[in-house]
Amino acid sequence: MVEPILSVRDLVTYFRPEEGVVRAVDGASFDLHAGRTLGIVGESGCGKSVTARSILRIVERPGRVEGGEILLRRADGRVVDLAKLDDKSQEMRNIRGGAIGYIFQEPMSSLSAFHTVGNQIIEAIRLHRKLTAKEARERAIELLQLVGIPQPQQRVDSYSFELSGGLRQRVMIALALAAEPGILIADEPTTALDVTTQAQILELIRRLQAERHLAVILITHDMGVIAEMADSVAVMYLGKIVESGPVDAIFHAPRHPYTQALLRSIPSVLAAPRSRLATIAGSIPHPYARPPGCPYYPRCHSFMAGVCDKSTPPVNRIDAAHEVRCFLYGAATETAA
């Protein structure tokens, strides 16, 4: 098998405010391959965004990457553990935006209102590549063209507030690709956008990925977007990856009770009109009131008293690519072990 470009092992990121501990990411592991899209899906508070921020080492205080490995394969073949790097170090800054590009949900707050979009892209280009101002400007116009911005020669001199939400997100993507990274992290890139604009942006990401053989981490709460975009999927719940596997297996043969329930409860345009949805009981616990054992057990229909609420379920392997963190599939591990 091809070596992954990014390999996350037992990532632990905790927030320690005065009130207690929030286990935002609690032992997440996954691999990312060039030219493939990994979808990380989950509801609010599941830790999907913190996972992305941990990889980029931009977790805000009082949060901190407290354990695990984030192994990045650099272009020269070297493997760097990002978890061990100082988040303010020169190398980390080179990786951020250099080896890993990223786009966030709200493009307005990620773009400066005081510089033209062109200047921001030029700055990003020159930060990572030695180009003259003129060359960088040409490159910026090329990038704007690449992300489908009409009249890039004029748009290069406009400010972010002069652009619509969809165009702003395109500029963000141009910015993320300025240093030609091998990895693109997209955190809810279309949540703030309308559905037709979302379709445009998803199409763009897909096209760029094919053209540049990008490895993409797509973070979203929308199962529809995941089904549309991802090659493999990691489902997160309260800081844990409860299930991961190829997109087809996740959608058509889900194993974890949470994945199963989630898939049944999402509204779909394919459903019969006015059909009732299956529901998941209760709501997501407050991060301070995280249940012991399997975090999903209070809402789980397959809850086994004395097992699920006592200890954390291990990762059980269904097949080579499909893993599930649930006691229901324990027998498989025992025979494997």
């Binding site: 009981a281 209760g282 809402r299």
Partner: peptide, 17 residues
Amino acid sequence: SGAVADQAVPLVTAAEE
């Protein structure tokens, strides 16, 4: 039937109350 409301979640502690 079918709908299960939020009270299925374990009862809150005195401090939370």
